[in-house]
Design a protein around this nucleic acid. Structure first.
Length: 723
DNA sequence: CCCCTACTGATCCAC
DNA sequence: TCAGTAGGGG
């Protein structure tokens, strides 16, 4: 068979990785170096030269989107359906294993996946049950304690002994939480991984079966793996399945959710004699942008080391704009996008990147003012919206009525007169009898322990679920969903909600119907047969859902730096480049967290293909307070000769005091200084003039020093020099 | 049960 | 500053 087409158009490094023998392989793939391409071609290569069947290849990603994209590209390249490839997220694949071996994993056949909202409810309930002080142990913190322990692979029983009452309480809640989840057959995200990890460890025969079955493993974004994911891969691969991991230590930005950058360094020691290939040729950015990125990231120690290069041209210098405040910054950004469009470019080819979501408000305001359409990425996942979760909870009950989390969620949504008292009675009853809330409810109704409105409502509720589940086999998934949201009253509930909110929620429910209609179970060959309903419910838990529909309009893209990872744009504007904001206040002290901030900046810079614009505000209103933060150290780490400072102050958004004083310069005798000017101070170094007040010998001047922040100085003593 | 008010707290977020 | 929420009063 002719396989040359698989190697065509690849550079030497890419080709080395794609055509490597069946062995462990670490591919260090710089930004824009064709990483996905290598993964996809590698799979094609193995299938065609090593005769690997699709079902003997497993490829693991972090997001469903990435998995979907890879699958699509494989199909395109090989021109065959790639159904039987095991492509998916860590969680999705773990879920699949657990489903297939639920008994060995000590789970009920119908075990349910808890999303983080369900999880928080359970934690709260346990804490109330045990009278834990919610101010000392905030439920959210308890939840993240549990999650981080699971991510580290530590069960409650294996927590180190402690004398601290605080830690002890955490451990107790964790223990209770584990017990209750087990009792009601519920599994959270971390548990999916932990449980399937244990499944293999406890069942060597089963593990051996899969080690025979899979001939090659591939992992994308390896720098984002956490402890349990790494352990999971190690156990699965053992010394029998060769594995290829692709990642970039310089783009590791998820340490705060458990990712261990060390994993990529550790790989070479834990997996036998891997071949290491570096992809350093960049096909995305101008050499100016790459040089900036390389110099910036060189400030981090302990890298595996990589230098991006390109055959492309130098391109334009990076623009740096020092705005007076965040309004001026937003206005400038809107201006730049306007002129980009005036040059005949697409708005959708431009992106505004920022460190924190709170920054988007002002930016939006000024984009609206200039009538520039925009689209904000990120925010709430589709399946995380209240109304969607409620609808899915009904489906969950139809599928499996003993799903306590779903039961609790919607017994009284929309409100039907089932109060707190009734529900807590149900809980006690269920607990005492070790039965589900559903059973408890049925029993109490039969025993006549529920009276009045509650009785009527609960009877109707039970009947509704019963009749829906009786119908489920005769009608389509979409019809079932439709029935569930109308007959439960959810639809009317939101229709009657006042304001735009209800409207938006109705639209989302309709969107869910569309999703149900389009949903097809792409069941793979030997997978146990999941009903469409079960598969749909699993998807709702494990998939973020598609972003909003209005993708077609030509919009400026706005997102956080984190969500920009993996994307590219001809024009990139990085806003809010100030100390305290970026690097963020909470990450400035700890060197390892600061390094992560720098990597985040590196990610931002390397998103730009043609033009990069960096802005910062000398004064910024944050949490109701005026902050004067110096320009970000990251900006100063970019070689000055790659940047040009833009110093046209447009007065549109300037506060009155600035605008009024801007025309008249001020100073001792001669008109030496003006707002925005860079000055030098013997002790504090360079800074920009922010403001001034008073006259003659009393005149004071406010300067925002690059290294010392903003200070008020008496002009006659300060001995400032213009720079 | 619902609405209003007072209070809190605040990077980044996939599964 | 402001959004989201807990708790009280109607």
């Amino acid at each position: 068979m002719d396989v040359s087409h698989i190697l065509d158009g690849l550079n030497d490094a890419q080709r080395e990785a794609v055509a490597a023998p069946m062995q462990n392989l670490l591919v260090l793939a710089g930004a824009g170096s064709g990483k996905t391409r290598v993964l996809v071609h590698r799979i094609a290569w193995l299938m065609e030269t090593e005769n690997l069947s699709p079902s003997s290849i497993m490829a693991v990603t972090f997001t469903n989107k990435a998995a979907k994209e890879m699958r699509g590209r494989i199909e395109q390249l090989l021109d065959i359906p790639a159904r039987s490839l095991w492509f998916g997220t860590f969680h999705g694949i773990a879920h699949r294993f657990l489903r297939a071996h639920s008994r060995d994993a000590k789970l009920p056949e119908n075990f349910q996946i808890l999303d983080s909202d369900d999880q928080l409810r359970i934690v709260k309930r346990i804490m109330r049950e045990f009278n834990v002080d919610e101010t000392r142990w905030p439920p959210k913190q308890v939840q993240s304690f549990i999650n981080s322990k699971k991510d580290e692979g530590i069960r409650a029983a294996y927590l180190p002994p402690t004398h601290s009452q605080y830690d002890h309480t955490l451990a107790e809640i964790y223990k209770q939480y584990e017990a209750q989840c087990q009792q009601s057959g519920m599994v959270d995200f971390g548990e999916l991984l932990l449980r399937s990890h244990e499944l293999w460890l406890n069942n060597p025969a089963l593990l051996a079966h899969y080690q025979d079955r899979f001939r090659y493993l591939l992992v994308d974004e390896f720098q984002d793996t956490n402890t349990i994911q790494y352990a999971w891969l190690r156990v699965l691969a053992g010394d029998r399945i060769p594995i290829m991991v692709v990642g970039d230590d310089d783009q590791s930005i998820y340490g705060w959710r458990g990712a261990k950058i060390e994993n990529i360094q550790q790989f070479q020691f834990d997996f036998a004699s891997p071949l290491v290939v570096k992809l350093e040729q960049n096909y995305r950015s101008t050499s100016t942008i790459l040089k900036a990125a390389n110099t910036l990231i060189a400030n981090n120690g302990d890298r595996l080391g990589k230098d991006l290069w390109t055959n492309g041209n130098e391109g334009e210098p990076i623009d740096l704009y020092a705005a007076f405040n965040e309004q001026d910054e937003a206005n400038y950004i809107a201006d730049r996008i306007s002129s980009w469009v005036d040059q005949g470019r697409q708005r959708s080819d431009s992106a505004i990147l920022y460190r924190s979501n709170a920054q988007s408000r002002v930016l939006e305001e000024f984009l609206i003012r200039q009538a520039i359409p925009y689209r904000i990425y990120g925010g709430l996942r589709f399946y995380d919206r209240q109304e969607i979760r409620n609808a899915v909870a009904y489906l969950r009950l139809v599928f499996y009525r003993h799903d306590d989390a779903a039961f609790e969620r919607v017994v009284n949504v929309p409100t039907r007169g089932v109060g707190n008292k009734t529900v807590s009675d149900l809980r006690v009853h269920a607990r005492e009898q070790s039965i589900s809330l559903w059973q408890a409810c049925v029993e109490r109704l039969q025993l006549g322990l529920i009276k009045g409105k509650a009785k009527q409502s609960l009877t109707q509720f039970i009947d509704l679920i019963d009749s829906l589940s009786a119908e489920q086999d005769q009608i389509s998934l979409a019809q079932l969903t439709e029935q569930a949201i109308t007959r439960s009253g959810l639809k009317d509930f939101h229709a009657n909600e006042k304001g735009e909110k209800g409207q938006a929620r109705l639209e989302n429910l309709n969107e869910l119907l569309t999703a149900a209609r389009d949903f097809s179970v792409d069941n793979d060959d030997d997978d146990e047969e999941l009903t469409p309903l079960a598969a749909f419910i699993a998807q709702a838990a494990l998939d973020a859902g598609e972003q909003q529909a209005d993708e077609h309009q030509d919009c400026v893209q706005m997102m956080t730096l984190h969500s920009a990872k993996g994307l590219e744009f001809p024009l990139v504007l990085m806003a809010g480049m100030e100390e305290g904001l970026f690097p963020h206040q909470m990450s400035m002290e700890d060197p390892s967290r600061l390094s992560e901030e720098r990597r985040l900046c590196y990610v931002g810079v390397t998103r730009a293909m043609e033009k990069l614009i960096i802005t910062y505000a000398e004064s910024r209103r944050l949490y109701g307070q005026e902050k004067f933060n110096p320009v970000s150290r990251f900006v100063r780490e970019i070689p000055a000769d790659l940047m040009q400072e833009v110093r046209i102050k447009n007065s549109v958004s300037m506060p009155v005091s600035f605008a009024a004083s801007q025309s008249s310069s001020f100073g001792e005798e001669s008109a030496e200084f003006h707002l925005g000017q860079v000055v030098n101070h013997a002790k504090f170094g360079e800074g920009t003039v922010l403001n001034y007040e008073g006259q003659g010998s009393h005149a004071r001047i406010q300067v925002n020093f690059f290294d010392h922040g903003s200070k008020w100085l008496v002009l006659s003593y300060a001995k400032l020099e213009a720079v």
